[in-house]
Design a binder for these strands. Sequence first.
DNA 1: TGGCTGAGTCTGTCAAGTGGACTTATCCTC
DNA 2: GAGGATAAGTCCACTTGACAGACTCAGCCA
Lengths: 158, 158
Amino acid sequence: MPEAMRWSTENCTISRTMQILGDKWTFHVLRELFVGVRRFEDIRARSGIPRQVLTERLAALIERGLLRRHPYRLPGQRERYEYRLTQAGLDLYPVLVAMIQWGDQYLPLDGGPPIVAQHRECGERISVVLRCEAGHEPDAREVAIRPGPGARPRSLAG
Amino acid sequence: MPEAMRWSTENCTISRTMQILGDKWTFHVLRELFVGVRRFEDIRARSGIPRQVLTERLAALIERGLLRRHPYRLPGQRERYEYRLTQAGLDLYPVLVAMIQWGDQYLPLDGGPPIVAQHRECGERISVVLRCEAGHEPDAREVAIRPGPGARPRSLAG
DNA sequence: TGGCTGAGTCTGTCAAGTGGACTTATCCTC
DNA sequence: GAGGATAAGTCCACTTGACAGACTCAGCCA
């Protein structure tokens, strides 16, 4: 029996993160904000999200603290709001970059990658690497996901 | 107008990756495999996925090349199959670790993290870092996501 | 006064997820 | 060889959520 079977999933960090991100459309919304598209109608036009779903997802992301509304005003128009990433939202960059990196490797396109992550200062391509606290950079087979200090035993019954 | 508005999203790497991963249950399945739970009934019991959905998601992940079926046999039982990550699946570690890291920071629990990523060789905690090809390790505000060589212009009309 | 625009809200339809019961194949015990 | 256990599914009825398309609303402009 795998060791993990003895531990509960109820408070699992991945689950709790997926409750926020784990939705087809939520990730599309985040992508738009990461590439700099901030307004309702622009996000909708580029991503194809149904309006109602977009409204709901934006509200959820604000409530979770990943976005905030920011007033803006076009000349000769009334004040409106755009949506911006908070620090919590910006800190999803590693997740985004890791996904782009995986996609570039396993779902490549003939013309090359359609989007790249770039260091603003020097213009070079950015990627993510795994690193342990001893300074090693392990590859995938050297990584193990184990129960941590907050792990709770599983009440078997299902 | 943000620059990104001029570029099409149709072949976006994030979208194409999300077509595979961007589903509440798919990620739960992957989590189970990453922590070492490989059998249908074990996955179902720990994650609470409805059987029908689990059947469908496993089949999809196999078809996409992230998993493979592997025969096994318990003493005194007939042969069955378990599910294992392929190299493509294992290479999602950076995505998983990035998500755990974000969750630990922004959705912390009193008892500490319920799961941790560990280097098998030395036992130290593993995290992900962003790094550019010039060797810098930028923080979130220094990252930009830009159109790459495969970007296609957007036919405006929506 | 009437029209434009961005950002929504409303509505009916239809696909998908859900829980619970049922099925199948194999092995074990009697 | 009959009956039971078990892992891995299938089947079914029900409910929830996504979806497209039309409608609303507030402020500004001509």
